[in-house]
Structure formats: C-alpha cells, structure tokens
Design a protein around this nucleic acid. Sequence first.
DNA 1: GTTAATAAGTTCTGTACTCAAACATATTGG
DNA 2: CCAATATGTTTGAGTACAGAACTTATTAAC
Lengths: 408, 408
Amino acid sequence: MRENGVMPIAETPKNPEPGTELARSGSPASSPGRILTLVHRHGSLSRAQLTRLTGLNRSTVGVLIAALAAQGLLYEAAPEGEAQVGRPSPEVHPNPAVAALAVNPEIDAVTIGLVGLGGRVFKKIRYPTQRIPTAAEAVNIAAAVIAGMRGELDAQYRVVGVGVAVPGLVTGVDGVVRHAPHLDWHNEPVADMMAAATGYRVRVANDASLAAEAEMTFGAATGIANLIYLNGGASGIGGGIVADGRLLTGVSGYAGEIGHTLVRSDGISCHCGAFGCLETEVRQAPLLAALKLDAGDPAALARALRATEDPAVTAEVDRQIAHLATAIGNVVNVFNPEAVVLDGFLAALYSAAPEQLLAAVSARSMREPGAQVTIHPAALGADLMMVGAAELAFAALLADPAGFMEAR
Amino acid sequence: MRENGVMPIAETPKNPEPGTELARSGSPASSPGRILTLVHRHGSLSRAQLTRLTGLNRSTVGVLIAALAAQGLLYEAAPEGEAQVGRPSPEVHPNPAVAALAVNPEIDAVTIGLVGLGGRVFKKIRYPTQRIPTAAEAVNIAAAVIAGMRGELDAQYRVVGVGVAVPGLVTGVDGVVRHAPHLDWHNEPVADMMAAATGYRVRVANDASLAAEAEMTFGAATGIANLIYLNGGASGIGGGIVADGRLLTGVSGYAGEIGHTLVRSDGISCHCGAFGCLETEVRQAPLLAALKLDAGDPAALARALRATEDPAVTAEVDRQIAHLATAIGNVVNVFNPEAVVLDGFLAALYSAAPEQLLAAVSARSMREPGAQVTIHPAALGADLMMVGAAELAFAALLADPAGFMEAR
DNA sequence: GTTAATAAGTTCTGTACTCAAACATATTGG
DNA sequence: CCAATATGTTTGAGTACAGAACTTATTAAC
C-alpha cells in the first residue's frame, strides 16, 4: 500500500464522451455555437449536462453561457423537478424571442411561419392561392404577410432571417431554385428575390431535405445520426438522407431523390423520363379513389386504411407496400441507416400494415443492415415544414453566435 | 478623391477560400493534422499553397511545419520548376519512411504491402493459399510475412500500424468482421488477432469502402468530394460512397452495398435473400464464358470486349450495361455525386461502350443530377487495396500527429 | 546593373479560448 | 447537524493563432 507518498498526478479524463453530440450539417460549429445549438435542440438543458455533452471544462461552459446570455440568446433559470445529490445545476433555456421566419410555397398556398429558438412555432399563416403561384407571386405573398407582422416582429422578437422550403431542386449556395416541377419554376433566384423584398437574410433549400433534418432534430428520429426520410404527397415522393448527423446534399444540392428509384422493371413511365419509379408505382390517388376519399389528409387516410376490408383496397395496399419496401430495402443496403421515417401518405400506408412493410424491407435488404433498421411514422406533422425552414435561417446563428450577432 | 487622408483600415480577407480543402472521414483534424494530411495526399506542396489551403496565417503555418518536421513526419526542400515573382516558397514533402502495413485477405491469397506517407507502395507481397484462408490463417500468414520484414522495417521505416481490407461487413469501431460471405468468416475479431500477432495498432474495414477512399485520395477522383465507387470482382459487386469528402459508413459500418439494388423485377434470386440484384444480373462469368477467357484479368477482358463482334457477346454486354445503368441511375438520384468510378470488370464493361452506359444512366436518372455526373474507370489498379488499407493505418496519425507521436 | 514590385518567410506581441486547481455553495442521506 | 456529493466560481497559466512589422529572394523594368 502506498501511504503518505506523493500521489500520482490526477488522471485527466480528456476526450469528451464520443458520440454524445451529433455532428451537424453545417461547418464545425464554434464552442458558443455548440452550446447554443444543444440548447436549441433540446429545448432546455442543465449547465452540468452541457458540460458533459460538449466535453468542455465547467469553468469554460460557465464563461460561454454568460456570454450567450449577455447577447440575449439564452437565459438561466432555477432547476425544476426532483433534485439530485449535490448542488443543483441551473437550467439553460433558449430565448424564444430570437426567431426565424419560415416560408413554404406549395401548389395551392404559400405558408409563412414564425419559429422561436427552441423550435416552437408561434405563428403559422397559410395563404391559399387561386392557382399555382409563380416565384414572384410566392415572394410577394410572403413579403406582404411579413410586412403585416412587422410591427409585432420588431417589438417582440429578434428575427434572424428567413428560411424557404421549396418542393424542387435547389442549388446549395446561392439559393436558386433550379427546377421545381410541380410549381413549374425554373432557375428562379428565390433567395435574392426574397432578400430584396423583405430585407432579411434568406436561405433556400429542398423541402424534403429540411423535413429530414427537422425530424432528426425535433421529431421521430431525435438524436439519430443516420436516417432516411421519405414523404409521400399529392404530387410525388420526396426524400432526405442524414448520414453521420449531416444532411446529404450531393455536389449541387440535388441529393435525396429516392422517389425515382426503380421498383418495377415493367412499370409505367415517369415524368422524370425513366419508368417504374417508386413515385409512379406508389401513389396516394389510387388509395383515395378506392376508399372514396378526396381530401389528402394523411390521418383520415390512415384511419380508412386500417378500417377497410375491401379486397380491392387491400390488394392495392399490398402492391404499394411491396414496391415501397423495394425502394426502402435498396437504400437500407446502400446507407445502413438506423431509422426510416415515413411521412404523408407513406406514413398512412405504414400504419395500415406495419409488420408487413417491415418484413418486406427485411426480405429486400441484406441481413445485418435489414435487421438493424427501424421504421417510424413522422412525428412533426403540420409544423414540420415551418420548423425545417426555420432551421435553415437559424443555421448561421447556431454555427457562430458571436460572429452572427456582431455582423448585425 | 481622398488624398493625404487617413487610409481606411486595410481590408482583412478573413475566411479561408471555402471548399478548397476536403473534409475527411475521420474526426475534424487538428491544424497540424490538416497540414500533414494535405502534404500526404498531394505528395508535396509549397508552404504558400498550404497557407492558402488551410486558411491559416503564414506565421502559424511556419510554426506547424517546423513542429512536424521536428517529429520527422515531413521535410522541406528547395522549390523546383519555374519560379514566380516573389520569394520562392519551399516545397514540403511527406517523409516516405513513415509507413503503414497493408493487409488484404482474399479467397485465394493474402496480400501484404508497405506504403509510405505520400502514398507510394514500397513493397507488395502476394502470398497464395491452397484454399480459402480462415481468419486465423490469414492473420498468421500476414504476421509471418511482417516478421520476415521486421529487420528492414525497424531499420529503415517508422511503421505507424496495420490496415486490413476485408471483403465483407466490418463493424466500425472494434474491427470485428461480422460476415465475409466469400471467405466464410463470421464474427472474427480480426483487429485484435492481428494486433496480438504483430504488436502493431490494427484497423479493419471493408475493402470496397477503402477502395472508394483511395480513388478519391490518389486515384481517378482526386479531389472529388462526392463520388460513388463500384468494383466488380469474381465474387460480386462491392461499393463505397463518399459524400462531402467523408466515406459513408452507416450506423454500424455496413453502408455501400450497391450490389444489392433491384435492377430487374423478374430477376433470379440472390444469396442475399432478395432477387434481381445488380450483383446477380451483372456478372463477370458470363462475359468470360462467351469470350472463352478464363482468367479474371480486367485489362484482358476489356481488350476482348472492345475487339469482339460476336453478337452473343454484344447482346450480353448490352443487357449488363442496361442493368448497371439502372443501379447507377438510382444512386445518382439519391446522392447527386460528381463522379462514378468503376473498377474491376465493371471498368471493362464501361470501356466496351462508354457512351452507351452514360446515355443509359442519363435516361434512368433525373435531368440535373444525371447531366452532371461523370463516369471514370478506376486509376489505381493493382495497388488500390494496399493504398486504401494503408490509409486506414495512417488515419490516426493524420488526424492528430502530435498526439499520435506522443502515444508512441 | 541597379531599382522597383512582389511574394513569401520570420519575429514578436497580443488575444481569445480553454483547462486545472482551489475554493464556495447547495443539495441529499444519515 | 454533518458527511458526501455534485456543481458553480474564481484565479492563474498555457496554447493556438492572428496581425503587424520586418527581412529575404525572386522577376520585371529602366
């Protein structure tokens, strides 16, 4: 036994626990950025939790939080709930008055939202349009709605920018919508147009990609770093892929088009030029027609699918599930994701026969990745696009709070 | 005009040129790590180029290079070639004596190599086996060959570790080969076995993934951050995906199995349990049989394919190209890669009718991503697996040179 | 050939970030 | 009330890096 001797230098546990914090899509965030991001995503965290998650020293965390609090980005409050042994650690909350505007043009409406740091949706205004809006019209509508809120925004919020979620291919850097087939937009400089019309910083991205990030951040796949998101809407199937916590964009931002995977060699031809695509074989319209529903409400569709015993409907469901499973099995082999999140009518399809889809995916994928993957219906529902688009506007702030606040 | 007045403070160009340096698979490297990595990948760079690529101040780069040179990891030399205006910037070279061992077990041989920093292959020893080696046999063979080189290694090189490239599914962290179908290995702790047998640090990964990284780093896709690599061998089709400069692994390291994408709905059944997989429809054997070749040399196959006018052969080529294009089109839609690199007999297939494959891929993919993607035959050939496996062993050194040298 | 112009290496100093140690504080369980 | 525990707080030091000022090596111009 060693007694009275000089103790060896205290072991210094260096490395932060690996894997506790997800890498994020953007560039490697600064330390204040990591703190703010964690608080934003979790809604609230104790200082002690932040210390563990970041791997930083608790004195450092103290300094960083003080700085962020001084900038009005977050605030501390007394802890609530049962206390543990030891000095209680104050809860750190994001300041929800720091907010982002979210814009989502669709074929029949433009939706504008206001989302606070922490992910709460304060406002959501759906502005229906007579016909499919042009890019200029969509921008004008959004700008007008924002102008109407301006007094309130300036008085009660600090708006960091605008995020636009567009159902189409968007070039990453400059916010140009290259091609949005259902809106019939081509090479529209939406970011510049919206910036000119509102005076805010604007970023634009593909809606499905943003939805994938939103589901990872706040939804069904919270904390999962490898996931596939698939959304089925009236106009087709969009997707987004998150790998190692980062949203995949590809060279020019077009990644994620899982809707155009081959699922049937003798399938009918698709507007993309190919044939037998997932999007042409798995559609909402035949299901609605067979069930004699007309609205595209996924919840109603899910209820009807679960209730029906019509053999024509179940045959169509079986067919679509088989094709969906083929596409999912392919991407499971290619990506080895932890989870697949299904949204829109694909979630309804899943809820009609969850084991059947899971079994078919297993059959179509290799054993190990097929056995590991889980399937979830999306959790964010109606607010999804608002949260996703807002995340786009928050990104710059979250990456470098000091630099962002300084620049304005 | 302002004259004699106080000049405005010199504009300070901050941010390093974005996109000049690729993010890498590993964790975000330290600054010395970034320098060493760049020098390793480029073979040699001037200090001025390193300053620009890293975005660091030139005084900082000077300090970092001095430290790395003191550790014997790189050295500076007088610049060669035509000089520019201004003081010449010394060339920084990696020290090739800092080397990694590479091991690649296959069904009929175990290949052991020695690769220097900078990517040069100094030695490559192919040790043929009578039958498919077990994991223990493969480790023993590799350990014996390495023991035979030991004197030379200790005298002339600094060996940083061993990288093993295995044709099978490998769990990322612990180096366990979960399942290598063609070797018939199951749950073999290859990393631990090899470490025990050689005394070196060992890392293990999937061969196709390593090949993808090697082609990105030193081969046909140098500097391309978004690419798909597909290799066709006697036993099937393997692949690897690099997105934003990072190799995708998935949750448990199984990502990249593009060989099991559906390409034909009424296709024959595959050993993976599904049917109509790329791997079952596009195979080397029928091509070799039709051409009456027996060796699987891709170069000979490519020559024979280009020379033949046998309609049976061209029909088979057409069929395989169509199926290959389907699989490539799918992943192009999903990933929007800049390049697809084809290796093994797939490269031969491509060289037989390059425009045909390209056109078929375009037809199967969406317009924008389909128009952007390029297809290349692999460039690294015989040394590919050695370079890829060595990269695995170099990774820890490149991420944090100081920490690595200190730890031993 | 000397002299600018240019581009880069070198030296020095300041600052921001971070950690560790010592200390202070708030809680639970005896 | 006291020990044990976990945490916040204060202080001092170390490191990485940037920026300014200076030096050096080259080409281009006269």
